[in-house]
Simulated assay, not measured.
Amino acid sequence: MGVYVSLIHYPVYNREKKVVATSLTTLDIHDIARSSRTYGVKGYYLVQPIENHLWLARKLLSFWQKGHGKEYNPKRWEALKLVKAVPGIEDAIADIEKLEGKKPYIVATSAKRYDRAVSFETLRSKIEMENAPFLICFGTGWGLTEEFIESSDFVLEPVCGPTDYNHLSVRSAASIILDRLFGLR
């Protein structure tokens, strides 16, 4: 069984705490793919319900996965071959279930603290002990919705520094989280 990640563009909050779909950022695609490949993630789902953004993501991925980009930069291809662009999180879950034969545990991430949050060490142990896939979900905008977090199987503790400022880019947070879970100890 394996670990998968998803970058969710809906359902997330905007700064006014309204539920929105956020715009695609191509740097997120590349950087999270590179971190995923570095730490042994089996797949990376880009969840983007906006039709023309989904088209753009698939066009970019086609260039790197099948087009000139594959020959031009094989290292980039090696990371980007992990990425699938899908319109909804249910599509990612169904694909993982088809690949693994089991529905994945859903792990929500957030910069906020939750009473039911598990530590990096606890989640690392669960991943090592369980015979099931895990899907670690990263939110764009101002984070995953409360409904999404409540419906998840696990909520991971936030990445925190020594200051009261806690607003990392999603690509930075994803890299730190993957390192804390799978980096050499």
Rank of each mutant, 00 (worst) to 15 (best):
Y72G: 06
H167D: 03
P49Y: 09
P74V: 12
R116W: 06
L184M: 10
F148L: 14
I106S: 11
D31N: 12
T145Y: 02
F154W: 13
L156K: 05
L184W: 12
D31K: 13
A94G: 05
E71T: 08
I29L: 15
E128N: 08
E128W: 03
E146D: 15
G67S: 07
S62V: 00
K42E: 11
V155Q: 09
V107A: 06
F154Q: 12
L82G: 03
F134Q: 04
D179M: 07
S62G: 15
N14I: 07
T140V: 12
P162F: 09
V12W: 13
I106P: 05
R58S: 09
F138H: 08
E147T: 11
I8K: 10
I93F: 01
V83E: 01
G161W: 13
L56K: 06
S119T: 15
R37V: 00
T145M: 10
A173P: 01
I149L: 12
A173Y: 09
T163L: 08
G161Q: 09
P49A: 05
P133K: 06
P162V: 12
K70R: 15
V47G: 02
N73L: 12
A57Y: 11
K103G: 03
L178K: 10
I127L: 07
I176P: 02
E51I: 09
G101D: 06
E78F: 06
E71H: 11
S151W: 12
S152K: 02
K17E: 13
T109A: 03
S152W: 10
L60V: 14
R58N: 15
N52Q: 12
K70Q: 14
G141A: 13
P158R: 13
G183H: 12
L156G: 10
A92Y: 01
